[in-house]
Write a protein that binds this DNA or RNA. Structure first.
Lengths: 326, 326
DNA sequence: CATCGTTGTTCCAACGATGTAAAGACCGCG
DNA sequence: CGCGGTCTTTACATCGTTGGAACAACGATG
C-alpha cells in the first residue's frame, strides 16, 4: 500500500507537496505537478482514510440507525441513503435495533463522534437521547430532546388514505397498527379519526387493533381478530404495507374477497405491494426525498456551530390499486 | 471528546497505563487499575477508532458488495452479515452495484485496504478481479481469479425444485431467469435440465425464458411470453422469488389459476413469499449460515499469511407452499 | 548484601495524513 | 544592486493510539 512518503520519494519532492497536489492546492509548479501525478498513477496511491480523518477530525462516516434491514421499507430507504451519502463522500454505517429499547440504546451508544460524523435515526422506543453528533430523526416518534426531523405529514397522509376508503362507500373502516409508544402510530391513528369525523362516520374503538410489531404476522393476527367480530369491517387501513400483506393473507385464508368484501389500504408503498394479488393501494412517501433531505440536512449541520432544529416535510401520494377498486 | 491523555491526567498515571487497562493488559496494580477505571467512567472515554486502527494497521470495517438493498434477498442477507460481523467487532460498509459492470468495478475500486480489512462480494458482471484485501464471493458467478466462495449447491437445489414440480405430475415445466453471463443462472439451468433428464422429460428450449434483471417486472414479462405460447407450460421454475412474484402476478391478470393451471416454484425464500396469495413454494438457502460462514472465513483469513481458497457449501431446503399444492 | 527475575510503569517512536510557519526561489521596481 | 512582494516548497508538529524498550520497584535467592 503506497503512502504519501512513497509517492514523494518517487517524484523527488516533499511529502507535503504531494499532499498539496492530492488536495488540489493551486500553487504547485506545473513541472512538479506533472511528476507528482505520474508518481501517483504509478504507485496507485489511495489516501489512508483513517489517517486523514484522524488529522482532520472527521470520520467520513454517517450512521443509519433503523429497526431491521429485512423490513422492505427500511431496506429501500437504506439503499437511497447510501446513494445520497455518496454525493457528499460519506460512507454509511448501518445499525439494526430490531425495534427494541435495548437495541436502540446500544446502537446510539455505539455511534459516537469517534465513529461517525453524524447520524440518521429511525427511533421506535427510546425517548431520552444523549447526542454527541448532529442527528436527524426519521418519522414522528416523540423524544424529549429537540432534534431535527424529516418525514411526511402522517396525519394528513392517514386521513387521505381513510377518506379514500370512505369515498368507495365503505363505512365500517378498521385500523391495524395502533401502538402505545410509537409516535408515528399515534399520528396515523389521529389521521384515521380525523377522516371519520370529517366524513361523519362514528368512531368505533372495536375496529382499532393494535400491533406490537409491524410484521406480516402481526397484520394477519389483527385481521383474524377483526374477522371474528360480530360485525366485521368492510375496509381496513393498515399502518404499513407489511401489516396489510398479512391482513390480505388472512382474509384470503378465510375466503373474504379483497376488494369486494374488504377494501385494504397500506402505508409505505413497498415495491412488493404493486405485485401482490390483489395489488395493494398504499400511501407512498417519497423515499428518495426523505433520504436526500436527511443527508443534506446533516451535511449542512456538520461543521456549523449553530444547532438549529429543522423540520423537513417531504411529499407523499396515494397509489390506488386493486385492493380498493370499486 | 475525552482522549487517553485526559483520562491519564485525571487518574494520575501515564497514557500507556490507561491504554493497558483499556486493552486488558494483566500487569496493572489493582490500585491504579481502580483509579483508571474510575477516570474512564468519569470521562466517558471511548477509543478513537481511526487512531487505533491507524496504529494497528486495521480499519475495523468489512465491505459488503451487493446489487441492491431493495432486493429482499440482499436486504435480508445484509442484515445477517451485519449481525455476524458484530461478533468480530467489525462494522459493515455496504456498496450497491445495481448489477452493472461499472457499478461493480466502482465498488471494488472503492474498497481498498485503506478502507476495509476484507470484503464480501456478490458479483453478477465482473470477471476480472484485482483484489487487495481478503475476499469471499457469494453465489456462483464465475471469475478468472481463484477466490473463496460461500453458497449453496445451486445445481442440486434447482433440480430438487424441478423434481418437486414433476412429482406433482406436471410435464411442461418452464424456467424463468436464464442469463448469458450469470454463473448462478447457468447452474440453476443445469439443475433444471438434470431434473428433466432424470425424470425422463424432454427438454423444450421454448420453455426457457431469459431475464435480464431479476426484478418482479422481468418475471411478469417472461410469464406473459410463456402464456402466449401455443402450448403453454403447466409449471414454472423461477430463478428467484421476485421473478416468481412477477410471474404469479401475470398469471393472475390472465386468469390462469395457481396452482391448478400452473404450479410455481421460486428461489431464495423471501419473507414475502410466505404471505403472497397463493403462498410461494421456494428453495430456501440458509441465509444465516451464509452470512456467518462468509464473515468467519474472512476473520480466519485476515492476518493469516497463507492465501488458501476455501469453498463452503451451506445447506438449503425446499419450502413447499400453496403455489405447488396438488 | 549483591544479584536476579518478576512486576509495574513510563518514555519515545510510529501509524499516514495535514496545518502552520518559515525558508527559498523568483519577479519587478526604484 | 537591493528591496519588497508573490509564488513554491519544505520541515516540523500534531491528531489519538499502541508497540517496544527502558527503567524502577519489589521480593526472593544464595
Amino acid at each position: 500500500m503506497a503512502t504519501l512518503k512513497d509517492v514523494a520519494r518517487l517524484a523527488g519532492v516533499s511529502v507535503k507537496t504531494v499532499s498539496n497536489v492530492v488536495n488540489g492546492y493551486s500553487f504547485v509548479k506545473p513541472d512538479n505537478r506533472r511528476r507528482v501525478e505520474e508518481a501517483l498513477a504509478a504507485t496507485g496511491y489511495r489516501p489512508n482514510l483513517g489517517a486523514r480523518n484522524l488529522r482532520r477530525g472527521r470520520t467520513g462516516f454517517i450512521g443509519l440507525v433503523l429497526p431491521e434491514l429485512s423490513i422492505p421499507y427500511f431496506a429501500e430507504l437504506a439503499g437511497l441513503v447510501i446513494a445520497a451519502a455518496q454525493e457528499h463522500e460519506w460512507n454509511v454505517l448501518i445499525e439494526q435495533t430490531f425495534g427494541t429499547l435495548a437495541g436502540e440504546r446500544a446502537a446510539l451508544e455505539a455511534l459516537g463522534p469517534h465513529l461517525v460524523d453524524a447520524a440518521i435515526v429511525s427511533p421506535e422506543a427510546v425517548s431520552d437521547f444523549q447526542l454527541e453528533v448532529p442527528t436527524v430523526l426519521l418519522g414522528e416518534h416523540e423524544v424529549d430532546v429537540p432534534i431535527s426531523r424529516v418525514g411526511i405529514d402522517n396525519v394528513l397522509a392517514a386521513s387521505t388514505a381513510v377518506r379514500h376508503l370512505i369515498s368507495l362507500g365503505r363505512t365500517r373502516i378498521a385500523a391495524i397498527g395502533a401502538h402505545p409508544q410509537r409516535g408515528t402510530a399515534a399520528l396515523r391513528l389521529e389521521g384515521y379519526r380525523t377522516a371519520l369525523e370529517v366524513e361523519g362516520i362514528e368512531f368505533d374503538p372495536a375496529l382499532v387493533v393494535p400491533a406490537l410489531n409491524y410484521h406480516r404476522a402481526d397484520g394477519a393476527a389483527a385481521m383474524n381478530s377483526l374477522l371474528d367480530l360480530e360485525n366485521p369491517p368492510d375496509a381496513v387501513f393498515c399502518f404499513n404495507d407489511l401489516l396489510a400483506a398479512g391482513a390480505m393473507r388472512a382474509a384470503a385464508e378465510r375466503f373474504v374477497r379483497v376488494p369486494q368484501d374488504l377494501a385494504v389500504v397500506g402505508f409505505d408503498n413497498n415495491e412488493e405491494s404493486a405485485y401482490s394479488s390483489p395489488s395493494l393501494t398504499s400511501v407512498a412517501p417519497d423515499k428518495g426525498a426523505i433520504a436526500r433531505a436527511a443527508v443534506d440536512l446533516l451535511h449542512r449541520r456538520v461543521g456549523a456551530d449553530a444547532v438549529a432544529v429543522e423540520n423537513v416535510q417531504t411529499p407523499f401520494s396515494l397509489r390506488v390499486r386493486e385492493s380498493t377498486a370499486s
